[in-house]
Each structure stands twice: as C-alpha cells, then as structure tokens.
C-alpha cells in the first residue's frame, strides 16, 4: 500500500519531456495521418522517376484522354490514364507533387525568414520598431493577395521562380504576427532578463534564448503557410496566371481538365483529390504539432 504512491511519483518524475512528447505525438491521430500522407507525397515526388517510366511531358496525340485503371477502356501502361495531349496522368501527378511541395516549402521559407525577422524584431525591441512592423503588417494585410499576385505574374510572366517569389513576398504576415506576440510574451521572462544582465549581445539573446522558445509556433505557422501557398499556386495556375504549361502543376492539371469535366470528370477529380489530400495532410500536421507542443492551446 505504501509503495504504490511512491512508485507513481517516481514514474511521473522519470517521464522525460521527450517521452511525454512522443506519447502525445503517437496519441494524435490527425498528426499521424497528416504526417503519413505528407511522407507519401514527398516520397512520390522524390522517387517519381522510379515510380513511373513515363515522362510527364511526352505527348501522344493519338492516345488522348485514356481513362484511368478503374474505368473501361483503360490502358495498362497509363495507370491513371492520359490527359488532353496524351501525356501520362500518373507521371504528371507524381512530378506535379514536386512542384506543389517545392512551391510550398520555398515559399514558406522565404516568407518565414521575412516574417520571423520582422516579428521577432517587433516583439523584442518594441517601441518604434514594433510600430513600424505593425504598420508593415497592416499594409501587407490590406493588399489583396490573389489580385496582387495575378497582376505581378501578368506583368513579369508566369514562371515557377516568379510564382514562388511573389507568394514568398506576400505570405509573411502570419509569421510576423505570431512571432511578434510570442516574443513579446517571453521577452520579459527571467531567463531573458538574466541573459541581458550578464551582457549577452542582442543577436545572441535572440538566437539562443528567444528563438528556441518560439520555434514551435514558427513550425506550426510554417505548415499553415505551406498549405496556403500550395492552394494559392493552384488557384493562380487555374486562373492561367501561375505556373505555365507544360509544367505539371496540379492547379494547371485541373484547369486543363476542366474543359472536359462534364464527360471525363476524372481529369479534375484526380488532381483535385491529390491537392485536397496534400493540403489536408499539411494542415493536420500543423494542427497536430500545435496540440502536441502546446496542448493548452488546443481548439
């Protein structure tokens, strides 16, 4: 009888933060599902050349719009059928995953750097710096993202680089807002003050005292912005002012398949579901990470 409480206390104490995190991680289905899908998509993108021997660009005008494997009249060499120009749909889908992931990642990195720099500076220094940062955030939020991106792409031409740059320079607002408030919350905490007291440089304080404590939030925002960027790219490409053909972008695939959607609906269903699942996965991952690292903020 007397042993039991002691044991319990011991077992509680021996649970390391890492173990607790692991326990939470594996108990979170949304996160696991998101992670699994994301790993699958990433693997598909990475190993695309191994998964299919077809080129996403090779056209065969005599084999157009072959249906996918579950429909009558399908061709075994084209598992997911072919598109309007007879290009292998599976190959386009796999190589398209590269485009989506590339856009998501690079955009999130660019906007992450901009937004974090701005947000941390605002949160840490406060005062005039904060005022200036808040002003910039307000200006950015006031600009309609879709219209401004469309306009820029129309002016400078649609290429992968331009789309990534445009989105990268437009989607930093959430980083800045979240980083600003996170840093504000901890800048007055004791250990930060202690670091200040012993004369650490500002760079050092920010990098070694502040950043590690806000990195969770950063990662969560990064996943959300990745998803956001992927959807935006798809929308821009759909409107014809994003990535240009013949690049196999999923948004472009939907846009091109749209013409035949009434009769060959799989042309938009396949890339549509792919896009949906990828974005869903990234969002679930982001939500999950937030729940796991900051369970009190769940909701």
């Amino acid at each position: 009888m007397t042993d039991t409480p002691t044991q319990t206390v011991e077992s509680i104490i021996t649970v390391t933060p890492g173990a607790l995190l692991r326990r939470r991680l594996f108990g979170h289905y949304g996160l696991l599902f998101g992670l699994a899908i994301l790993v699958l998509v990433a693997a598909a993108a990475l190993f695309a050349p191994l998964l299919t021997d077809q080129s996403p660009y090779a056209q065969d005008l005599s084999a157009r719009m072959k249906p996918p494997f579950w429909m009558a009249g399908s061709d075994p060499s084209h598992l997911l059928g072919t598109d309007q120009l007879g290009r292998d749909y599976l190959a386009r889908l796999l190589y398209g995953a590269r485009i989506s992931l590339l856009i998501g990642t690079v955009t999130a990195l660019i906007s992450g750097v901009i937004g974090t720099a701005l947000g941390v500076a605002a949160g840490y220094f406060g005062g005039k710096v904060d005022l200036a940062a808040t002003f910039l955030i307000n200006v950015r939020l006031a600009l309609p993202v879709v219209l401004v991106s469309l306009a820029i792409v129309a002016l400078f031409g649609g290429s992968l680089q331009i789309v990534i740059l445009v989105l990268g320079f437009l989607l930093w607002d959430r980083f800045a807002i979240v980083m600003r408030s996170s840093v504000m919350q901890i800048r007055g905490l004791e250990y930060v003050n202690a670091a200040k007291a012993i004369g650490c440089s500002k760079t050092r304080i920010v990098l070694s005292e502040i950043m590690p404590n806000v990195i969770n939030n950063l990662i969560v925002v990064m996943t959300l912005e990745m998803a956001h960027a992927i959807l935006l790219e798809a929308a821009l490409s759909f409107l014809g002012l994003g990535v240009q053909p013949p690049t196999p972008s999923w948004g472009l695939m939907i846009s091109e398949g749209k013409e035949m959607m009434l009769f060959q609906p799989w042309l938009i269903t396949i890339p549509g579901i792919a896009l949906f699942l990828l974005v869903l996965a990234i969002n679930l991952l982001g939500d999950g990470l937030r729940d796991v690292t900051a369970p009190e903020a769940k909701g």
Partner: peptide
C-alpha cells in the same frame, strides 16, 4: 492545348 502540343 494546341500551343502546348506545338511546344512539345
């Protein structure tokens, strides 16, 4: 699509 076919 025709522009794309020409490009290919």
């Amino acid at each position: 699509p025709i522009a794309e076919a020409i490009m290919a």
